[in-house]
Design a protein around this nucleic acid. Structure first.
Lengths: 147, 147
DNA sequence: AACCAGACAACAATCATTGTTGATTGGGGT
DNA sequence: ACCCCAATCAACAATGATTGTTGTCTGGTT
């Protein structure tokens, strides 16, 4: 994730206006968890800017993903996640608490060598693991944390 | 995918009734493409059984997935896909026509050796590739086919 | 300070999916 | 064969995430 200032700069460079709403979203993302939903970003922003609409948050997030500053992730958890982490990695969705954990790509090894034989071409590969996160693994008596 | 007869048998064994609607869904799945949406199954069934409701189709599909006879797949294409193929495999979603292509697992090699160090435990791994299918690869001038 | 494209908030709409309800029916036990 | 009742059904309403519409407002350049 780039700093709020860098994102503001990027917006100016691409002829977008840097509004209070946008600054607030940049900052919420910066201090946020890393795989927030639009709803979560909106809640966070609304603490300081109560009038901001959810629609506006959706628009700003979409623009950020168009600029490649974040990645939209559909992990089958109901709502799209907006991922700051621009370095190649994978995800584990905790079956117990719903948390999303980054899995560094170097911990996995994907060999797709045989795939071309099917006549397809692959542009992206997304590995979704399901299981339980370290927190739920240790303190098992289920305590829903962040969805 | 098991035969419609085998599914009927399975339903009887688990104290479920074998209704005309269920038989029709079993048969639609049997002759269908392999990653149908609920909507597609409903359309197919409705050709012979015009009064069946979409809700009923959803219920039958959910029961089949509870029995492990098919797998619900959310590939980020808007609607859940119901997958007949019970053998481990992965999926490629065509960015051009939206088709879903099975990728046999033996064509890929997933090494997850380093993952435990994070304290997580992995129960399932789902690899989603995006790119273009063999059809769109050859006859490029885009022709939307089956979504 | 004025301008105006772009951004905003409020509101309605959409789409996949699930909940509710009240009528209907399959099939095991008599 | 008949009864019975839980299981199933269809119609309808509701949900939740997301997007479309519209008319007003504002950031940042002139």
């Amino acid at each position: 994730m780039r700093s709020p200032e860098a994102l503001a700069q990027r917006f100016r460079e691409t002829d977008r206006k840097v509004t209070p709403q946008r600054i607030a979203v940049f900052e919420a993302l910066d201090k946020g968890a890393g795989h927030s939903t639009a709803e979560q970003v909106h809640s966070s922003v609304a603490e300081n800017l109560p009038t901001i609409s959810l629609k506006t948050v959706y628009e700003i997030l979409r623009e950020l993903s168009e600029l490649g500053e974040l990645v939209m992730l559909d992990l089958g958890t109901g709502a799209v996640r907006y991922d700051h982490n621009l370095v190649l990695h994978h995800h584990l969705v905790c079956n117990e608490c719903g948390a999303v954990v980054d899995i560094p790509a170097h911990l996995t090894d994907l060999q797709l060598d045989g795939v071309q034989d099917l006549g397809v071409s692959v542009s992206t590969a997304e590995l979704v693991l399901r299981g339980s996160c370290s927190r739920c693994n240790t303190q098992d008596p289920k305590q829903p944390s962040n969805k």
